[in-house]
Computed example of a mutant assay.
Amino acid sequence: MYRWGMGIAAIVLAGAGPAQAATVIDSGTFDADDFVYESPSTTLGPGRYRFVVQTSVPVDGFFGDAIKQTTTNFYCDEGDGEFACGGDDVPTYASFTQVNPSRYLATLTVDAPQTVYFGGGGFETGYDEFDSCCEFEFSFETTQGGSYTLSYGAVPEPALWMLMILGFGAVGGAMRKRRTTASVSYA
């Protein structure tokens, strides 16, 4: 039983992969009494991401957003074989929230591209949709000099967390079972 539990834990932990280190998108320094405004961008594929603005000293009046763009292209059968209808670009803003005097977090989900067709025997109408990520805007004031970094990391999916919890539970159960059987003595 113990080996079985350890085997499950090894598989779960191997599937989890190594913890992803933060990837820096932008960084810089500032002087005392500066007003800092930054608007960097980066390209990310489908997934859930946590963005972090970290300053070396507490700052005043911090405001910022992480922004993704969802583009939808609509296609209509105009009866002559032409398929054009229009499109729409919709931004999604995730505001940075303060978690301590010098750290701000925002989380965005970038969806995978999709194509949807409607109609009977052939292509009549449809649309495709994709997310472009990400642009950033943040600003703050400061009374002392310091530095800042903007970074991101992938947020683990809930299913991965559940697998890890089950794996640790199996290891705990196997260890408890082993300890229970080891304490039985025969006289």
Rank of each mutant, 00 (worst) to 15 (best):
K68Y: 09
Q69M: 14
Q69L: 14
T70E: 15
T70Q: 15
T71F: 07
T72L: 01
T72M: 05
T72P: 02
F74T: 01
Y75A: 02
C76F: 11
E78T: 11
E78C: 09
G79V: 00
E82Y: 07
F83K: 06
F83E: 07
F83T: 05
A84Y: 03
C85Q: 01
C85K: 02
C85F: 00
G86C: 04
G87K: 03
D88S: 13
D88C: 07
D89K: 02
V90N: 15
V90H: 13
A94L: 06
A94I: 00
S95E: 12
S95K: 13
S95D: 12
S95L: 06
F96K: 03
F96Y: 09
T97G: 10
T97H: 14
Q98S: 15
N100M: 05
N100K: 03
P101R: 06
S102W: 06
R103M: 10
R103T: 08
Y104I: 00
Y104C: 04
L105H: 03
L105C: 02
A106H: 06
A106N: 02
L108A: 09
T109M: 07
V110P: 00
D111S: 12
D111K: 07
A112N: 09
T115N: 02
Y117R: 11
Y117C: 10
F118I: 00
F118V: 02
F118Q: 08
F118P: 01
G120W: 06
G120N: 12
G122S: 13
G122T: 12
G122V: 10
E124F: 08
T125W: 08
T125I: 05
G126D: 03
Y127A: 05
D128L: 11
D128M: 08
F130E: 14
D131L: 06
S132N: 15
C133R: 02
C133D: 10
C133T: 04
E137D: 15
F138L: 03
F138A: 01
T142K: 03
T142V: 07
T143Q: 14
Q144L: 13
G145S: 13
G145L: 13
G146H: 11
S147C: 10
S147H: 12
Y148T: 12
Y148N: 05
Y148K: 02
L150W: 01
L150V: 08
S151E: 12
Y152E: 09
G153I: 04
G153P: 01
G153C: 07
G153V: 09
